[in-house]
Design a protein around this nucleic acid. Sequence first.
DNA 1: CGACTATAGACAGTGACACTATCGATAGTG
DNA 2: CACTATCGATAGTGTCACTGTCTATAGTCG
Lengths: 224, 224
Amino acid sequence: MRMSELSATTVTPVPTLKFYLREHLLHAGERTSPNQSQYDETHVERVRLVRALLEVGGLSVAQAATVIGVLTDDSIPLSSVFGVAQRAVTMPAPLTRESRGDGAARIAELCERRGWTVYPNNPGLALAARVVDTYAELGVDVITEAVLEPYAEAADLVAGADLAAVAAAPSEAGMTTVVAVGTVLGDALFAGLRRIAQEAESFRRFPLPEGTPAPGTTYTDEDC
Amino acid sequence: MRMSELSATTVTPVPTLKFYLREHLLHAGERTSPNQSQYDETHVERVRLVRALLEVGGLSVAQAATVIGVLTDDSIPLSSVFGVAQRAVTMPAPLTRESRGDGAARIAELCERRGWTVYPNNPGLALAARVVDTYAELGVDVITEAVLEPYAEAADLVAGADLAAVAAAPSEAGMTTVVAVGTVLGDALFAGLRRIAQEAESFRRFPLPEGTPAPGTTYTDEDC
DNA sequence: CGACTATAGACAGTGACACTATCGATAGTG
DNA sequence: CACTATCGATAGTGTCACTGTCTATAGTCG
């Protein structure tokens, strides 16, 4: 397969593919001459993965390169893949400024309560602490036990499903892929489901007045 | 309070505040003369909110402006705030290309199974469908019932907590703020907790070999 | 009163980022 | 042998979130 064919099957412009090659998001093809290369199915899959990470996962090119590095590097043990993928995906900027509140302590307490044992450099600790502090700084003190507990329970449910999916993968390479892809896409999947559940729950709690903007069937996928 | 004082208390450069004024993220101060304005506590809170939306929530300036518009506009009924906030926050780009897979159908089926009644233009529907399709396109067919169900159950838990927090707000204005802030920060909070729970669950499923990189206490917030 | 700093408003500039375009030399193709 | 495609390098584009500069005016201190 030549580059133009790769471009056609992946619906990605040739200059973009060249850019991905430069950025090591895409591995080089097999050289047949100084200025010709052959691409194969692995390149098609890789481009699809890259576009999924960038478009659906919202990663930057640098983050995507890190994730792909994890998939490619055989020397990284499976047990580390989660950590590397998590760290690559979790935006680092907000975590730099050290928290001024008690968010870290609240999250640590939550971990203890739930029996969550994690390394102290788990990016989720800093992220969650930062969010709790931010709520406090905004004067929106809704982050009570009554909120944190359901969130934590939900996180446990999702993490259980995530790990079950990983364990179900046929090969170790498959597991690695599931971890990397699942870390990125899982956030988006949950965000979508949360929006749906929020609206449904909102209807349950605050029923519409007799006015009639009742939601029709759920399963209409036309929305323009 | 003059602009320099606002700048000092919010740790935000003056040019940035001017930029926020131009972009309508920050309301104008009270004019005392053609080139002087007074700012007050509402401006301090607003700047904090803006920075929370941008840094922690990861919104663009345009998205943040939409969210702030919801908070400011008294004519928007509370029942619509969720929808507007969700639509402002959910990234629109990935949703434009219509799904080629059966993701929409799978999500619709899930909604029916769980009794979720929502408007067909709920952004979560398109987002979740897109993610499901993306998994399929990547050949990672882990999105089975065994995964979707826990995710959905978790979404219900979180949405229940979200709505309870909203209902607990003292005033309608407070409710609006909780909705807008919670929609944005809730995603981040859950993402953080999910990372923690993933690692904890990973230790449960795949205990460390007798080698000793055992995670220490959970509640260390030093991570540099 | 006058030096000095701060301010509003307008507008131009910056750096990061994700592409996108062009070019020259070569390679395959009808 | 014309003609398109490709490689690699380099440069350019558009967007975004600021950031800097300028002018005219306002407050502030000695």
